[in-house]
């Protein structure tokens, strides 16, 4: 298909690399941008250039922000003795949306996976250990996915953390019945997990 010129094809090829977009939806997105030049294309170009120039990962926690340390790390009202470990920035945003966590974060940048060739050195593990050793951290909360890779990473971190500092507690998010959830819609594994994690009312 050579109907579009090379500039447009390049735009489509780049858009197609975005998560959730395939070649067809990239084509639609490119068309929408080009048709709405003033309202969409130019503001987007500007926003992307701006983000590209100013957004950097925080040296402390790995979150993305225009300042370093990031807004969360430099917010004095947050509890620095509490660190929540997440896989990616997306999980951090989800926790911030909830607004119920008032500690700080640590973004790993992935999960351990021997088959995908992702080892501890590819993740921000040493930075986490150093933070825990150097500062007054009381608790590390592992908010990692309930998948094999997520749980392997959680086990691994728990082991490394307990070896590095023995005064801290390492916890994991609870797994079980979701808020507003009805039991008959839950799968067997979740029900079994919820039963194991039951607690006094």
């Amino acid at each position: 298909m050579a109907a579009a010129g090379p500039e447009i094809e390049r735009l489509i090829a780049l858009l197609a690399k975005l998560p959730g977009l395939g070649p067809r939806s990239a084509r639609r997105a490119a068309l929408a941008l080009l048709k709405r030049r003033e309202q969409l294309l130019l503001p987007l170009t500007e926003a992307m250039a701006d983000a590209g120039a100013r957004v950097r990962p925080c040296q402390t926690c790995g979150a993305l922000d225009t300042c370093d340390p990031c807004a969360v790390c430099s917010d004095g009202s947050r509890d620095g003795r509490l660190i929540c470990v997440v896989e990616e920035v997306g999980a951090l945003w989800a926790l911030e949306r909830g607004g119920s966590f008032r500690g700080r974060y640590h973004v790993l940048g992935g999960l351990l996976s021997a088959l995908d060739g992702v080892g501890p050195e590819a993740l921000r593990v040493e930075e986490l250990i150093a933070r825990v050793v150097d500062t007054d951290v009381r608790e590390v909360i592992l908010a990692l996915p309930a998948t094999v890779d997520g749980q392997t990473t959680a086990h691994y971190l728990a082991d490394r953390l307990s070896g590095a500092a023995n005064a801290i507690s390492v916890t994991m998010l609870a797994r079980g019945v979701p808020v507003g959830g009805e039991l008959d819609w839950l799968d067997d594994g979740t029900i079994a997990q919820a039963l194991r994690a039951r607690r006094p009312v």
Binding site: Q151, T152, H155
Partner: peptide
């Protein structure tokens, strides 16, 4: 060792 132990635990 720590990575292996994590996998073996699972």
């Amino acid at each position: 060792g720590a990575w292996l132990t994590a996998l073996e635990a699972q």
